[in-house]
Simulated scan of single mutants.
Amino acid sequence: MYDYHVHTTYSDGSFLPRMIDAAERAGLDGVGFADHCNVFDAEADQAYREASGFNLDLTYERRRRAIDRARERTDLRLFDAVEMDYHAAREEAIESFLEDADFEYAIGSVHAIDGVNVHNQSYFAGLSETEREAAVEMYVDHLISLVDSELFEIAAHVDLVERNEALRGLLTEDHYGRIADAFTDSRTVPEINAGRVLDAYGEFHPSESFAELLVDAGVSFTIGSDAHAPGSLIDCSEELRAVREEWHLPIVELDLV
C-alpha cells in the first residue's frame, strides 16, 4: 500500500527520517512526501505562508536532496511530491511553479473560501445560513475548477467543508453529482484521506456515501493518511487498510517512473 499524502518539517509535519521510520513500521510499500505549498502573491497569502512556515516553494530542492539520501537507507519507495493550495484565479502561477519544480506528482487542495481558511469555525459560525450556503457553493466551484484544470494527479480531502461544524451538512446531492462528473472527465483522482479520522470529526474524506457515489461514477482513488506525525501515520495506515476493504474501493497507483 502506498500512502501518497504525508507531511514533514518542510511544512507542518514531523522530521523526514521519523516519518520514513513510521512508514516502515506501518508496513507500507511506499510513502509520498507532499508538503504544503502556496505560491499566491497577495499580501495576506504571503503573511499566512510565513506564519505557517509553508515555504516549500523555497526549500523543495533541499528536501529533494534529503529524500534522495534517504532512498539509500530504506527499501520503501519514497516520492517527492507537493500539496498545492489551489485558487481558480491563480492557475497560471501554480502551473508555472509545478513545471519548474518538476515534482513526481502534485496534490491539489482547496483550503480557503473567499480568503478564509475552511477550518475557521468561529468565522463561518458567525455567518447567516444563506452566507454559509454560498460559501459551500464557492468551495465546490473551486474544487471543480481544480479537477478540471488537470494540474494535479490527486485532489485532496474533497469534502473538506464537512470538518467545520458550521458548514457540515451543506453539501447537497447536486454538489456531489457535479463533483463526481468532474472526476469522471479528468485525469485527476480523489484520495481516501484519513486526516481527521482519529480526532473528534472521526470520518474519512470523502464520506462513505460520497465515496459510493464516486465509485458508481467509475472514479478510482489513491490512499493518503495526511499524517503530520509518526504515530498518526501508523494508526491511519491501519484505518485505511480496513476502509478500502470494507468499502470495496477501487484503488490506483500513480503511474510514476
Score class of each variant (00 low, 15 high):
residue 3 D to G: 02
residue 20 I to H: 00
residue 22 A to W: 02
residue 37 C to Y: 00
residue 39 V to Y: 04
residue 41 D to I: 06
residue 46 Q to S: 07
residue 48 Y to L: 13
residue 48 Y to Q: 09
residue 51 A to H: 15
residue 52 S to P: 07
residue 54 F to C: 07
residue 59 T to R: 13
residue 62 R to S: 13
residue 63 R to M: 15
residue 63 R to F: 08
residue 64 R to I: 01
residue 75 D to V: 13
residue 79 F to H: 09
residue 82 V to D: 07
residue 83 E to W: 04
residue 90 R to C: 11
residue 94 I to L: 09
residue 101 A to N: 11
residue 103 F to R: 03
residue 106 A to M: 05
residue 106 A to G: 03
residue 114 D to T: 05
residue 115 G to S: 06
residue 122 S to Q: 09
residue 123 Y to A: 08
residue 124 F to Y: 14
residue 128 S to E: 08
residue 131 E to V: 04
residue 136 V to P: 01
residue 140 V to A: 12
residue 142 H to Y: 11
residue 143 L to G: 02
residue 145 S to E: 09
residue 146 L to C: 03
residue 151 L to I: 12
residue 153 E to D: 15
residue 156 A to M: 02
residue 157 H to P: 00
residue 159 D to L: 09
residue 161 V to S: 00
residue 165 E to N: 14
residue 168 R to H: 12
residue 174 D to G: 02
residue 175 H to T: 00
residue 198 L to H: 08
residue 199 D to T: 14
residue 211 A to H: 10
residue 214 L to A: 06
residue 216 D to F: 09
residue 221 F to T: 03
residue 227 A to M: 04
residue 228 H to M: 07
residue 236 C to P: 02
residue 239 E to T: 07
residue 243 V to N: 01
residue 247 W to R: 08
residue 252 V to S: 02
residue 253 E to T: 13
residue 253 E to V: 06
